[in-house]
Simulated scan of single mutants.
Amino acid sequence: FRVLLKWPRREDLPISLSSAIKSSFVQRGVFRHLLDLTSSFTIVNEFTTLATKHQGLGNQQHQNMLRSMIEETQRVLLDCVYLLVASPDFSQTAIADLCPLLKKLQPGDRFGHTQMVAWIALVYTISPKALQIAPTESSTILATLLEDVRNETAWGDQSLCGSVQLAVAVGIRRLQLSPVDHAAAPAFDVNMDRLAERAMMNHAFEVVRKCIIQNDGFHSNETNIQVADALLKSFILLFPPKLMEMERYSEDELAMLDECAANG
């Protein structure tokens, strides 16, 4: 499955085989199952099952082998999730499952591995790579997400909404400025600078730093790093005035902390 999805010349496949792949794998049920597995298929869960319902875990060497196999399976799971959302004819469907998963989180809820995967997958659909491969499909997703992040009250956690606002602002700005993709860009009725500013006010970067980059398992998958890296670098490139505002805010906060410390 993963090999077929990653194959760069899938368009050369016979139509019958390509149709079989789509009907068997590129579908919502498979995607939902993979998302569920990112939460349930863990080393702790599998070791507990083996220890309580089967014949035990074996010796230390056997446990190490099991751990390695589980970790490799987890990496394959993530690859499959990200490959599915990268498929232009499926990404819009994936959004319908990813957004509710993130919207229902409340402040103080645990932002676990599955939530990190959902966030990465969501941002991946409007990443520079996705915009380059399928600008028309990505612009449609951007329009959908723009409506989602405009309605902040629909999000349980406003900061999490801010992190998606940041990704949407970066995606639309990149699409509008690209000479190749410009024809695919619809007329977005929004001020990108204001949207980026709103994302900053909603502590978008704090979410990226604490919930995404510091999440367990973030560094174990290359796509996680690539998506977060592309988002942050794109913001720096496309919104330089906002970056300077952030620096000023940081300096003001540090000055205030120094003053508080000096005054006891």
Score class of each variant (00 low, 15 high):
E137V: 15
F205Y: 08
M246W: 02
V180M: 07
P135Y: 03
S234M: 07
N202L: 15
S234V: 04
S23G: 03
F1S: 11
A96N: 09
A187Q: 12
D36L: 11
L101K: 10
A187F: 04
F41Y: 15
K129C: 02
M256K: 15
M200H: 10
T38D: 10
E137G: 05
L37Y: 06
H33R: 11
A184I: 01
L5R: 03
L131D: 06
M246F: 03
P241L: 03
H113M: 05
A183T: 11
R2V: 09
D216N: 10
A121S: 15
I225H: 00
L78E: 09
N224Y: 01
Q61D: 11
R28K: 10
F205L: 15
H33W: 06
Y82L: 11
C80E: 12
L98P: 07
D216I: 03
G264Q: 07
G29N: 13
I141F: 03
A121W: 04
D89W: 08
A204F: 01
N64D: 11
A228F: 07
R9E: 07
A118K: 01
Q158E: 11
F235K: 05
M65H: 11
G217A: 04
A184T: 05
A185N: 00
E72C: 00
S87H: 13
K242I: 01
R10D: 07
E253R: 13
V168W: 01
E147H: 13
D148S: 11
Q165A: 10
L57K: 06
K129L: 11
E206Q: 09
H113R: 15
D258C: 08
Q63D: 05
V3H: 10
L34E: 08
K53W: 06
A196L: 12
Q158G: 04
P100L: 05
T144K: 14
V117H: 03
Q176A: 01
S40M: 07
I236R: 13
M192V: 09
Q106S: 09
S138G: 03
A86D: 15
F1D: 09
A228T: 12
N224E: 04
I213E: 13
E46D: 03
L37H: 00
I225A: 01
L175W: 01
G58P: 10
T136N: 08
Q55V: 00
P100M: 05
A228N: 01
S39I: 00
D229V: 01
H113L: 08
I213S: 02
N64E: 13
T48R: 14
I21S: 07
L84K: 02
L13Q: 03
A121H: 04
A94W: 02
E253W: 03
Q92P: 00
R10S: 12
L105D: 05
Y82P: 06
N45I: 02
L122W: 02
V76L: 10
R67K: 15
A183C: 05
A94D: 06
I236E: 14
S178Q: 01
Q74M: 08
R198D: 14
L101G: 08
